[in-house]
Design a protein around this nucleic acid. Structure first.
Lengths: 159, 159
DNA sequence: ATAAAGCCTGTAGCGACTAGAGGTTCAAGC
DNA sequence: GCTTGAACCTCTAGTCGCTACAGGCTTTAT
């Protein structure tokens, strides 16, 4: 999680970017992207200019990917990494970030399941005739026909 | 839903873009964006070049916003509009789009609730000490510690 | 020595807007 | 008729988190 800095770590056989990416379950482009935005430190290079990585980088990248899979934003991951790099710090900030994220996930779940209900109703009421009498089009045309007016208030950050 | 083309519709007082946006619950920028990508037809203009709208445009934009709020992609909305514009067509395509969308929503819900469980576990196990013994950091560092390995396989298109 | 695979940088694209710069037009009040 | 100020115009670039080239260089294996 810290220090891929030593010039030639004897223990680890020095991985190329592709192998690193494979081990963490992402693509080389993503690794370079993370380096560019500062989630991964600049990797040491071969004479020819290619990046080489050790086990520490694998761990760090795995942490990042895992946190991202959990839905944490890159900025949140940045903070989490910062804290993981300082194990002596109290962990209430970590806790706060995770709790905040949990709340967001829960609110998304609520809205998403309200949405599911509306979609089910819509689909269930479609009798399969012509568009002019289609319940789906009708519901989309007229918000009044929704059961819950406020529950699906914008799906933009919900998936 | 069709025909804001007539030169001067006497019934509707001709709205500016801001008023149209307000009525449909979005911003003028969004209206111009929808026009640019072809969801809204090019609006008639004043001599000075400002867009003017009638009630038909309000309806169409409301339809679009509503479908977007339901999480339909712009491309899906485009197809739905195309069908809403042709009421004599059979509605099974509408039905198919809605069903497909419902399936997507349901799969998102599944993954999102698996995620919620992991987050709850993480947050619940944090004892509030130092980062070095923080369960949250630990779980993020080590996928093994997750209950469900596959269930939260990437939050990217889940919100 | 050569070929194939992998790597490099830099740029542009995705979706669905949003924000801003810098300028023009409209509607209302005087 | 004139002035003000809000609303409008176009164009460009930014958001987020990557992903996908293009065009060239390095490494590794045969």
């Amino acid at each position: 999680m810290s220090g891929d800095t030593p010039p030639a770590p004897i223990d680890s056989p020095a991985l190329g970017i592709g192998e690193l990416a494979r081990r963490a379950g992402c693509k080389p482009e993503t690794v370079r992207y993370y380096e560019r935005i500062g989630l991964l430190r600049d990797a040491p290079r071969t004479e020819g200019g290619q990046r080489r990585y050790g086990e520490a980088a694998v761990k760090r990248l795995t942490f990042i990917r895992h946190a991202r899979d959990f839905g944490f934003s890159v900025e949140a991951v940045r903070e989490l990494l910062e804290m993981a790099d300082h194990p002596q710090m109290p962990c209430h900030e970590v806790d706060a970030i995770a709790k905040h994220h949990l709340e967001e996930v829960e609110s998304r779940l609520q809205r998403l399941s309200a949405l599911r209900e509306e979609l089910r109703r819509m689909v269930g009421q479609c009798a399969g005739g012509r568009v002019e009498s289609c319940r789906i089009i009708e519901v989309l045309s007229d918000h009044q026909l929704c059961i819950s007016e406020d529950t699906h208030g914008g799906a933009h950050d919900l998936g």
